[in-house]
Amino acid sequence: MRAVVTGGAGFIGAHLARTLRERGAKVVVIDDLSSGRLANLSGCDVEFLEASILDRPMLDTALGGADVVVHLAAIPSVPRSVANPLASHHANATGTLEVLEASRRAGVRQVVLASSSSVYGASAVMPKQEDMPTAPLSPYAVSKLATEAYAIAYHHCYGLDVLPFRFFNVFGPLQPAGHAYAAVIPAFVDAALAGRPLPVQGGGEQTRDFTYVGSVVRVIADAVERGVTSDRPVNLAFGAVRR
């Protein structure tokens, strides 16, 4: 199996690339290194292409002969999208459309895509279920809702097999902690190791379903190997809500 991982030098992507290689797949990574790091793939036998998913010729090169695409490339972070909504839209929504079109041109049999629990907005209903109304409250959330909607439309219009996952607060090794948009767990760990106070926002009553990156990539790899598809978004979470 030949698998392409967009954003494969990022936190989740690098773990997935290693897992797919360990399972015998040939892996091509395309990443512009805007948030990923080549060091994340150190020692991992993959074909690496440094390029944006908005670079159509390079995307066609990456997807040539591919069986499966796992589309993880995105500009992450709600605050970043609020600061620069156009950049978030171009990378996340238009980028997804480019990946889907390239997959159609290449005859890819399956596209797995990363959406986000942020599409649910501020609903207090727990647990979050796929049949709940979506209410995105940031440009990032809107772009992720567009990601999954485009995937589902391509399934119905072109017969492309897709699997849109909604990720919930993924954490684990390789997750960066040293920038303004760090997620809460690496920020906590970094502060604790440095002896700084933990940066707590709000009143501490917020709830999150933290999902370990190893669990996430195993689910994705299993879905790729088994050819699992869905014409509706699927929550990738385990219901272990933490305060």
Rank of each mutant, 00 (worst) to 15 (best):
Q201S: 12
H179N: 15
P164S: 10
I220F: 00
L63T: 06
K26D: 15
N235T: 02
S230H: 01
D231Q: 04
M58Q: 15
P133R: 06
L72Q: 05
A187L: 12
V125K: 15
S77T: 12
Y150Q: 14
A51Q: 06
A221R: 00
T229N: 01
P57H: 11
V217H: 01
T229Y: 00
P79I: 03
D190T: 10
V27Q: 01
T19S: 13
V213A: 08
P139L: 09
F165C: 04
V213Q: 09
E47P: 04
R232I: 09
R105W: 06
S215M: 11
V70A: 07
P85D: 08
P139A: 10
V69Q: 01
V108M: 05
Y150G: 13
P127M: 11
I12W: 06
V69F: 05
V68F: 05
A91V: 09
D60G: 11
T94H: 11
D190K: 10
G65W: 06
N169F: 14
S117W: 12
V162N: 00
P173A: 02
R23K: 09
A177W: 13
R166D: 09
Q201R: 15
R208F: 12
G239L: 09
G172Q: 03
P176I: 03
Y212M: 00
P164R: 03
P164W: 02
F238H: 11
R166N: 11
N235A: 06
A240C: 12
V111S: 02
V69R: 01
I75D: 08
T211F: 13
I185K: 02
I152P: 10
L38D: 04
S34L: 14
V219L: 12
V108Y: 05
K144Q: 11
H90D: 13
L63F: 14
S52F: 07
S42W: 02
P57I: 11
R243I: 03
P199W: 05
P186R: 03
Q201Y: 12
Y181L: 04
Y140L: 10
F210V: 01
T207P: 02
A91W: 04
V46T: 06
A141G: 12
E225G: 07
G203K: 12
Y212R: 02
L236Y: 07
S117C: 14
G227M: 01
T134R: 03
V228I: 09
R105Q: 09
G65P: 05
S115G: 15
T147M: 13
S230M: 05
E130M: 08
